[in-house]
Design a protein around this nucleic acid. Structure first.
Length: 494
RNA sequence: GUCCCCAUCGUCUAGUCAGGUCCAGGACACCGGCCUUUCACGCCGGCAACACCGGUUCAAAUCCGGUUGGGGACGCCA
């Protein structure tokens, strides 16, 4: 059996979006599973829309996701000569012909057909031009494109799709498509096939929006006398209104970099993505890299499209809740040693990082992450909700302030008093701080919760969090005492 | 308009190919309860779907036909 060779061929006309990322992931998984190769090919034949920035963005996106490729990036424009040669060969062999119809004529016909609700498509005007007629028009300097000549055959044209099964349509339904523009530049349908043949691609995993392309490309493989690769058309990712997700209409929310910038763990995002159109057949949903490679098969890819259930401007769910849930799962369960570098990056970006946390204080750093991560959703939470553990410039949220502090003006004396006891305590650990706090509450004849919740508020800024007495030693006696003594600053001046 | 594809809880899906074990399972979300100094933590429970019509069959989510609905494509874009 020959080596499997797959490719991911993005067109560099924008950022990498989740649909493209998922396609890349499926190709990558299949390559890994079969011990094959993944090739990255930048399809930049549309010079007007291709940009350097987009190429960089796509590569960075793949890198962030951890989708590695074995060859490339190749650039399609580097192989223009091959494409042009192939077009010439098809012309010579009678598989293609020159067409002199102008864009204007074609546009007019298309619009007319659209208005009359007639079938769209090329009417074969130039298909049967005699060699003399062609020579005459060329001599007159008329520009021409090269069109593929769809064979005049009875019966059905088709191929076997790995996920959809047999796909067929009538030969007459396929238009004679353009393979070379009037300016001599090749077009996608041709370039793509020529490149796939040269790169010896064995499996093409792409979106179902390519199904009509595949039908036409099957003809190209035949005319070019090349073996047909295996095709697998994966379902599309739709938005909540069931429209195809696109960069243009959805913007950042569908961009891979959005998830990087919102504190997603790369593998968690892959794990979410793979489930959008594939399932292992049992109840598993969380997979390590190796488990997923092992479990992944083309046969278990879904036929029907999936809705990416993202939300906008929702304070709780800024994107698909399931994506967040999977991210949380990883955030809360992965080995601290793997999570710590990601947290470090977040802290560094906020200017909060202290090198000691990678040295003498690494145990503290790991313990702190472990203590607070249970309630976090993304890596961003470490520098927002968890800021008080790493810095003094944290925000005290209004809700706990109202509920736990301002409601009890006596706290301006109670809390500094408790702070004094903490300052003088022989030991400052969870057991001792709790004993002291409860003892004082008893003396004051108040519920311990009043002191505890007030402490939580001024020490962490948050309404909720881990056990208060676990928190205190982590934040450290000095900081705790200082924050408790400063409670008056939250009350309006008398 | 033409062609192609698809159709199970709000969302992602299992079950469909080999009909009975499915008055349909899991996850997320939602709702309720418990735990707790707090909580968007944890634990327990609940709500919730086979698009419709017909056929085949002792038996249909599963097979067949039709209807409806959704999506995609129809470029000298990729």
């Amino acid at each position: 059996m020959t080596e499997t060779r797959l490719r991911f061929p993005p067109s560099p006309t924008g950022y990498l979006h989740i649909g493209g990322a998922r396609t890349a992931l499926y190709n990558w998984l299949y390559a890994k599973k079969t011990g094959g190769k993944l090739i990255l090919r930048i399809e930049d034949t549309d010079a007007e829309r291709s940009t350097e920035e987009s190429i960089r963005g796509i590569i960075e996106g793949l890198e962030w996701l951890g989708i590695t490729y074995d060859e490339g990036p190749y650039f399609q424009t580097d192989f223009t000569a091959d494409h042009v040669a192939a077009a010439g060969k098809l012309l010579q062999a009678g598989h293609a012909y020159r067409c002199f119809c102008t864009k204007e004529e074609l546009d007019a016909k298309r619009e007319k057909a659209l208005a009359a609700k007639q079938a769209l498509g090329y009417d074969r005007t130039c298909r049967d031009l005699t060699p003399e007629q062609v020579a005459e028009k060329q001599a007159a300097g008329l520009p021409s494109v090269i069109r593929f000549k769809v064979p005049d055959r009875q019966g059905l044209l088709g191929y076997d799709d790995k996920v959809l099964g047999r796909i067929e349509c009538d030969y007459r339904e396929v238009d004679d498509f353009v393979i070379l523009r009037s300016n001599g530049k090749p077009l996608y349908l041709l370039s793509n096939v020529v490149d796939d043949i040269r790169d010896r691609i064995t499996h093409i995993i792409r979106g179902q929006d390519h199904m009509t392309n595949t039908i036409r490309q099957v003809l190209l493989y035949e005319a070019l006398d090349a073996p047909l690769p295996v095709f697998a058309h994966i379902p599309l990712t739709l938005d909540t209104k069931k429209a195809k997700i696109s960069k243009r209409s959805h913007g950042e929310i569908v961009a891979v970099h959005f998830y990087r910038d919102h504190g997603f763990i790369p593998w968690a995002f892959n794990n979410f993505l793979v489930l959008l159109g594939w399932s292992p057949g049992d109840d598993r949903e969380i997979f390590s890299r190796e488990e997923l490679i092992q479990a992944f098969t083309l046969e278990r890819i879904n036929k029907s499209s999936a809705v990416f259930n993202f939300r906008r401007d929702d304070p709780k769910f800024f994107t698909d809740p399931k994506a967040i849930a999977i991210n949380e799962h990883y955030l809360r369960t992965m080995p601290i040693a793997e999570l710590a570098p990601m947290v470090r990056k977040e802290l560094e970006a906020e200017g909060l990082w202290d090198d000691a946390w990678a040295g003498d204080r690494q145990a503290w750093f790991f313990h702190t992450i472990d203590l607070i991560r249970d309630r976090f959703h993304t890596l961003k939470d470490f520098t927002s909700l968890g800021r008080a553990y790493f810095a003094d410039d944290f925000t005290v949220e209004d809700k706990p302030l109202q509920k736990n502090v301002l409601k009890f003006p006596d706290l301006t004396t109670w809390l500094p008093a408790l702070a004094d006891r903490y300052a003088q305590a022989v030991i400052f650990d969870a057991v001792e701080t709790e004993r002291i706090a409860r003892e004082m509450a008893e003396e004051l004849e108040i519920k311990p919760g009043v002191l505890i919740n007030a402490m939580r508020t001024v020490v962490t800024g948050q309404l909720a969090g881990p056990s208060m007495f676990e928190i205190l030693p982590v934040i450290g006696r000095d900081r705790v005492v200082r924050r408790m003594r400063e409670i008056s600053r939250f009350f309006p001046a008398p």
